[in-house]
Amino acid sequence: MIGKSATSRKILLLAPLLLFLGLAYAVPFFGVVRWSFTLPEPGIGQYRAVFTDPLVQSVFIRTLRICLVVTAASLIAAYAIAYVWVRGNSLQRMLAEFCILVPFWISVLTRAFGWLAMLSNRGLINTWLQSAGIISEPLALARNELGVIIGMTHFLIPFAVFPIASAMRSIDERVLLAARGMGASRTRIFWTVFVPLTYGGLIGAALIVFVFALGFFVTPAILGGGRSVMVAELVYLRIFQSPDWGLGAAISVVLVVFIGVLLTLMRRFIKPAHLVG
């Protein structure tokens, strides 16, 4: 009796969220699904196009390539930051915390333009390298895939830090002491004990970053300069700048299904509580 009423009270407390998600996401999404099967004529023609159209294919492949590179780069950087955050002295911890939290206060748009100011042909880096005489022609750092990767990695690092730091915190200090006591060098302890004990956090971080990266829109649009279009931007272009709503809708549905599969995998590997540290 008590259990039952407690459960129904919890559902009642969740109701506003469920209502909001239903109205703001589920209903419009079903509209998108309907478009994908009805525009311009009923059928699965648009899905056939998603898997055969060379343009759509190239965007999907580019998206996957960028997401993989961004995931790898974010994990490496996040691992170093998390290590300092968890195992550094109090000053190092404070600095790391600062580096993790500050990006959350700056909008994605501002950060993308910030990177443009750094990376463009007349940006800070190229101007400095040219005036120092190191290069004569500006390096192509922005308005291409490299710029997109730099901007996205910068945005996604903090999200990778939390699960990794959480895994590092749960390592029993005595296990590391034991390894030292047996004569293992610090390098050996790091690679054969410390890193393997954080695999769970690394897998979680990789999935979060990858899933996040798949749907990136603002950063690739600005730093890619229209030359390295990712899936989200392609959907935008199909819906807003062409009459081809059906294809845009079908691409969206495929993306959502793919992300759903990845999230299911993630639930299998780690508990949601570990993702926030």
Binding site: L177, A178, R180, G181, A184
Partner: peptide
């Protein structure tokens, strides 16, 4: 001399086995 160079055997409270 640091612990890794003394290399005594040690059994910890809670054993501290490598869980992986």
């Amino acid at each position: 001399v640091p612990a890794e160079d003394r290399s005594y055997g040690m059994v910890f409270q809670g054993y501290a086995l490598f869980p992986h």
